[in-house]
Amino acid sequence: MQLEINDLHISYGATPVVQGVSLHLDQGSIGCLLGPSGCGKTTLLRAIAGFEPVAAGEIKLGERVVGSPCCSLPPEQRRVGMVFQDLALFPHLSVGDNIAFGLGKIDTGQRWRRVAELLRLIGLEESGPLYPHQLSGGQQQRVALARAMAPRPELLLLDEPFSSLDMEIREKLAREVGQILKQEELTALLVTHDQFEAFAMADEIGVLFEGRLQQWDTAYNLYHRPRTRFVADFIGEGVLLPGVVSAEGGVETGLGRLQGVGDGTVRAAHPPGSRVSVLVRPEDVIHDDASTLKAEVLRRDFRGANILYTLRLASGDPVQALVPSHCSHAGGERIGIRADVRHLVIFAD
């Protein structure tokens, strides 16, 4: 295990910012801290780097405790690399010299062999003599990554590294950076508020809200098996549809009776008659002109091959449906739909 955090608390004065966070990240894995602005993810990253004091709990790198209320290694002794949001490349140094800067005092031959190795790894073999202003934003991002990777840190931290880039290239670059880190067998932890970056890059993702870790899991489980209402609402799209647990099984909702994998667990956890909320994703609602169940189109978001419709059921509850874009309907139209919920995710009201 490369990174281990146990019951960590961080405060600014009397204000708690991180509360009781525990997680672990194995050697060679890429983790991500994901959440809205102000949830504590950057504070947690800075504490791992050694820039924020720990009020309670501990941070371990390998077998070493590097952060606790009674023991805190300074940042330069933690063997942690960091890629900052603003990249912080030196404008007066060439690309090669920027990468070499992090290597310290080592043999000159070793230094430039490592720089050449990293330039090949990031796909900028011919760019060593250039200066940062001569590169695109994505290329500058790769150079900042190479500089942080140069001394082979035990852990690499990335603080919102793609936030300054255009949205259309963020996911692509996140995937490329993930591949580079895997080739170097580096352990890394990314902070972002963009779940698509997290999905493209991370092996495990932690969702933070108000300083608490809601769930540390794979992207698949966060989407299909969220443990809290916040994770269900924050990850992906969809609605929490109100319903009542049926004595016959499943949950009665405005979409009809919903049944699926997890139905037995629902009856065990929620007695018949219990009011609950069911997570319904857009792909769970199928457009079907032959269906007797109708819903009014409130909004349509064109997405090329698909249209995301926001619909109002006869019960007044909203749902979303992802429909092939050749099935085009205007606002106010009533269209036929049916539910195809394969897995019930239920929260008590």
Rank of each mutant, 00 (worst) to 15 (best):
E4M: 10
H9P: 05
I10E: 06
Y12Q: 11
A14P: 04
T15W: 07
V18H: 07
G20C: 15
G28D: 11
C32W: 02
L34A: 08
C39N: 09
K41I: 03
T42L: 05
L44A: 08
R46M: 12
I48C: 04
F51M: 13
V54D: 11
G57P: 04
P69R: 00
C71F: 08
Q77E: 15
R78I: 05
F84N: 10
Q85K: 00
N98F: 03
A100V: 03
L103N: 03
L103S: 02
K105T: 00
D107T: 01
L118K: 01
E125S: 14
E125M: 02
G128W: 00
H133C: 03
Q134W: 02
L135K: 14
G137P: 01
V143W: 04
V143G: 03
V143L: 08
A144D: 08
A146M: 12
M149C: 10
R152H: 15
R152G: 02
P153E: 13
L157G: 14
F162R: 09
L165E: 05
M167K: 15
E171K: 15
K172S: 13
V177D: 04
E185I: 02
T187E: 01
A188W: 04
T192A: 05
D194T: 06
F196M: 13
F196C: 01
F199E: 04
E204P: 00
E210P: 06
E210V: 01
R212N: 06
Y223C: 05
Y223Q: 11
R225D: 06
F230G: 12
V231Q: 11
G243V: 11
G243T: 09
S246L: 06
G249F: 11
G250H: 10
V251P: 13
E252F: 07
L258T: 14
Q259H: 07
G260Y: 12
G264V: 12
G264L: 14
R267V: 08
H270K: 09
V278R: 09
V280Q: 00
R281H: 02
D284E: 06
I286Y: 01
F302H: 03
N306E: 14
L308K: 12
L313E: 13
A314G: 11
S315L: 11
L322Q: 15
L322V: 03
L322H: 09
V323P: 05
P324Y: 04
H326A: 10
S328C: 02
G331S: 09
G331I: 12
G336S: 01
R338P: 03
A339T: 00
V341F: 02
V341W: 04
H343K: 08
V345H: 00
I346G: 13
